[in-house]
Simulated assay, not measured.
Amino acid sequence: MNKLVSLLLSCLFINPITHAKADNWFADTPLQSSYSALSADQTLLAWQELQLSLSQNQINEHYWQPIKDAVLSKTQCGKQLISSVSLPANIDVSFINKNSVNNQGYQIKISTEQVTQPLILELFDENNTLLVTANIPLPTEEYIEFESNDLLSTPKAGIYQLSINNVRYPLVISSFTNTTWVRQSTDQTSKSFIVTPPENKIACAPAVMNWQWFDEQYNQIGKHISMQLTPVMPITSAATDNNLQYAAKRPAATPSNATWLSAVVSQFEYQGEVKVEYIQRFSLPISRIETYR
């Protein structure tokens, strides 16, 4: 049993002498079955029980996130979470926090590739509210993306349902805006952004940090550019693995048709065959950037 699971279980074991049920090591809560499955090294069962518990109960993320982390750590970041639903395409679901100098918003995006049959995708939140729809009438190998309308508030952590040709595929979505991953430097003349990457998840890839150029209609121009990062000392406390900050200097050259420059920090996981991505993006108009060149 790896260290993450051992720590999780050590925090949740209950003394059987004082518990009402002497033969049960775990508190009688909606998450009891997930804890029991993890302790028995039944990772897939623990995941299925977590999905079921979240679909039937209102549970604070603080209590179920350690279970999700433990499951991802034991399944190659979720790639080994098999499902009875066979996917007719490569499907990504992205949760996006969009920031600029004057406003903030949220959006959800579904993207597909290698679609092998007509496909209708619908994403519902825990209240069964339809958030975004994708309709692909013919098979295609091309990359296609579908975006929701702007959301007024951050997507809540919890259970979501991805309908794939009317078959539900549950997704356990985590919070991703509790900390700021990217922001503009307070010293605007430094031509840099401050990046505080999210903590790495065991068995998952590190966060990805890129620059992206966009035109007036917010269509991406060219490919993304990897950020070159320089460590800086956090203002509030000594540097640790959880609060390392970096300065990311803006690209020197600007495409002639660019209107926006975005600093993008993203982190992803898999839930079976579905890739789930969390993105924070900070955008500046080119006119503002040129002021400080």
Rank of each mutant, 00 (worst) to 15 (best):
Y218S: 15
I159C: 10
Q212E: 14
D28Q: 15
H224L: 07
T180Y: 01
L31V: 02
M233L: 13
I120G: 00
F13P: 05
P285A: 03
I59H: 07
S6G: 13
L130P: 00
L52P: 01
Q267V: 01
A252T: 14
E269S: 10
F95I: 05
T154C: 02
V265T: 13
I67F: 03
E199I: 11
L4D: 13
P198D: 01
K79E: 09
P234K: 11
P234E: 12
A253L: 12
Q245W: 10
S266E: 08
Q188R: 15
L131Y: 02
T29G: 12
K79L: 10
S192L: 06
L9W: 01
L171K: 02
P251I: 05
P88F: 00
Q245V: 08
F282H: 01
A46D: 08
Y160S: 06
E142K: 02
A248T: 06
V115I: 05
Y270T: 00
L9Q: 04
S83D: 04
I173S: 11
T177R: 05
Q42V: 01
S86M: 09
P255T: 11
D69N: 10
S174N: 06
E145A: 03
N97W: 14
S83M: 10
P30K: 11
I96P: 03
Y35I: 06
W211Y: 05
L119K: 03
I96G: 00
I164D: 02
S100F: 01
L119H: 09
C204L: 11
P137M: 02
V265P: 11
I225A: 00
T196E: 12
D187R: 12
T240S: 14
F214S: 07
V264T: 09
Y292T: 03
L123Y: 01
A46T: 08
D125P: 08
T186P: 10
T186Q: 13
H62K: 15
P198Q: 08
L12T: 15
L138M: 05
N200Q: 13
L87H: 03
H224T: 15
Y278T: 03
D41L: 12
L9T: 03
P251K: 05
V265L: 11
P234W: 07
L138V: 05
S190H: 00
T240A: 12
N15V: 14
D69Y: 09
A46S: 10
K223H: 04
V132Y: 04
G158H: 03
P118A: 07
S192I: 04
E142L: 10
N97Q: 12
A252S: 15
D23I: 12
K223F: 11
A27S: 15
A263S: 13
F124I: 01
S53N: 03
T177A: 02
S148T: 00
T254R: 01
Q32E: 09
V182W: 06
L121W: 00
Q32S: 13
L4N: 07
V264W: 04
N2V: 10
Q42R: 14
G158F: 05
L229V: 06
T189E: 14
P155W: 02
A205Y: 04
V132Q: 04
G105D: 04
A89S: 11
